[in-house]
Design a protein around this nucleic acid. Sequence first.
DNA 1: AATGAATGAGTCTTCATTCAT
DNA 2: GATGAATGAAGACTCATTCAT
Lengths: 208, 208, 208, 208
Amino acid sequence: MVRNKQVIEKRRIKRADQKGKILRAGEKLFAKKGFYLTTLEEIAGGANLAKGTIYLHFENKKDLFISIVERKLDILLKKIKEGIGEEGSPTEEIKKLTKVHLKFLERNRNFFKILQSLSKEYKREMEKELTERVIKKHTRYLGIIQHLIERAIKKKEMKPLDTRKLAVILIGIVHSLTINWISQGEKDSLSKDHELVWEIFWNGAKQA
Amino acid sequence: MVRNKQVIEKRRIKRADQKGKILRAGEKLFAKKGFYLTTLEEIAGGANLAKGTIYLHFENKKDLFISIVERKLDILLKKIKEGIGEEGSPTEEIKKLTKVHLKFLERNRNFFKILQSLSKEYKREMEKELTERVIKKHTRYLGIIQHLIERAIKKKEMKPLDTRKLAVILIGIVHSLTINWISQGEKDSLSKDHELVWEIFWNGAKQA
Amino acid sequence: MVRNKQVIEKRRIKRADQKGKILRAGEKLFAKKGFYLTTLEEIAGGANLAKGTIYLHFENKKDLFISIVERKLDILLKKIKEGIGEEGSPTEEIKKLTKVHLKFLERNRNFFKILQSLSKEYKREMEKELTERVIKKHTRYLGIIQHLIERAIKKKEMKPLDTRKLAVILIGIVHSLTINWISQGEKDSLSKDHELVWEIFWNGAKQA
Amino acid sequence: MVRNKQVIEKRRIKRADQKGKILRAGEKLFAKKGFYLTTLEEIAGGANLAKGTIYLHFENKKDLFISIVERKLDILLKKIKEGIGEEGSPTEEIKKLTKVHLKFLERNRNFFKILQSLSKEYKREMEKELTERVIKKHTRYLGIIQHLIERAIKKKEMKPLDTRKLAVILIGIVHSLTINWISQGEKDSLSKDHELVWEIFWNGAKQA
DNA sequence: AATGAATGAGTCTTCATTCAT
DNA sequence: GATGAATGAAGACTCATTCAT
């Protein structure tokens, strides 16, 4: 019986390994060539598995794609939540969050490339239910920032501007610098720019 | 002979009409469904022409796509250039330019949606030569802003930060607000936000 | 204009020819190997056309299959209707109809083989709407025979048995002989057996 | 040693149980969805066994399918043989046999549905050797009826018609009524129709 | 010049079968 | 013996592109 348990455990681990391999191969390839130009055959090859095996873990190509995005967003969200607290000054929290975000993007450039390609296009194609999984998470992240900004405004640390738009702008700045960094060949450190982001955003939004 | 000229002229106009129809149908459809999910059949239908006719004007699907983007960027660049001058205060020029850009995006949301989908994905797929046509124009636009920022810095109107990154940030803010506007259903006026963009960017970047 | 008309007419004919080729190739192959083991590639090959061309004429494999069956049933029904009248003795009409049916099956053995394979299996798989097209026609044929039998009973030419079952039995006799004929290598004449069919059915069902 | 025998016996029973489960699950599913649309996974599920286990009892999917049919035909043949004798009037024997056959079909409608789908299609696909197992049994059944008819003719109870064809017709009548019964929703009793079958066949074939 | 019929390369997906555990 | 994870062959279907008319 104990042996049986071990066997089951081994299998579980193997399964998880396999799924991981597929997710990683998919991430790399989708980032490089986009959803449509990446074939399941390639992903299977990249994961050193047979085509059919992918279907043991994912319903279909779309499901795999969405799963990749979802998983990364989960990680980002988790990091963000771990990094910030409710007690400190909201301004400080936003600053930290920006740093965490940039660091995450720097380390997960593949993911970012995929996210960028997640344009309207996919939203039509990919079954609603699936996409919504992703959108929900993205919205939650936006919500976290928005909430911090609200608190900052209440504390008179920031000007009473539209909080959603401010959150959108902050993420926009981060993303535009990431795109620039990627298009410049990913040289230097991206996360170093966190000072610049803050310089602009904070001076722009702070209560005079 | 004179008659001949008229005939030739008529033909030219007819051809231009046709091309215009295709470009407009393509813009609408590519914006709605993305590059891969839009078929030439649909575009031909949208332009009230036969599929084969598209090939009289464009080399292939990619060429058509790139042409649409290129053409719009040309218009944007032209508007920008018309809108700004070399004499005035560079700060004022940047402010004007931001306004023009937002107005353009508001009126050409279709185009923007396409631009957004122009992620890495396409850059691989679309033969280099083609994409470069677009990138060049985008870079030129970035260059214009960068140049204005440089002038502003020289005039001590702005802090001596990395000019490329500042330009990137400005465009990033504009784009993120546009995405937000679209995702919220394109309600209210987008160009109205030009005040907000400026508020943030200017206070963030101005010489204290 | 006249020339134009001719061109259109030519095209129409070519199209019809093509469709005919596909139907004939499909009939032969479906009869030989059944629905599942016949590939569209084979049918296309048999019709000397490319795979894609089939999709210009039929929605998909099922549609092609059903169309083949439907078309043949149409022909059978037409022949039956032409062969019989309302005035003569119903018994005579049934006799004629049996003859026509056997002759048709003899000449269209391919079709019969397909019909035989049209078991429950397909009725599940093939979208309802499609199958119903076929079932309706089959039912109509059954109805014609049933109607004749009713008339024969009214005229006291036949015993007052269940008319539907009698019709079913008559067709059953015809089909079983056809199956036997095919399984024996399609030797001799099948339609010659029409005397035998009649001998059994008539003596069995006639009013003593 | 005695204990050993018991163990071996237990195993044999377990194996037989397993095989029985598979055969029953297969019968039900093949009848419902046909050969191609039924997956081994489903059958395994229906038998509460793993996919691989099926291969311990049957060579492959086809073998399983044929085995199901063969087994049922064995049972039918056995019942027929038990039911009839060599001494009585051949006419009486045929009558009995018809009754037994209808009763069997009524109780084994699943099997009949499978048999019906056993069209040419399968005969090609399923390796010859396998199919022949089934055909042989079917032929044997036909032979029994044929033999009885021959005896009836010799005794001048029946007209001297082609005995094979008469046998084919009799089975044809029985089958067509069964198909009709199934297509009408399996209402009423099928075996009740045995009177009708006999009425038609006997009056049709008897010596006047 | 304009058409649209014809093509066939390319891809997702299913599922019988194998085999390590 | 029993399992079910892994495989990969096979096939339906789409659609950009060509070219005869």
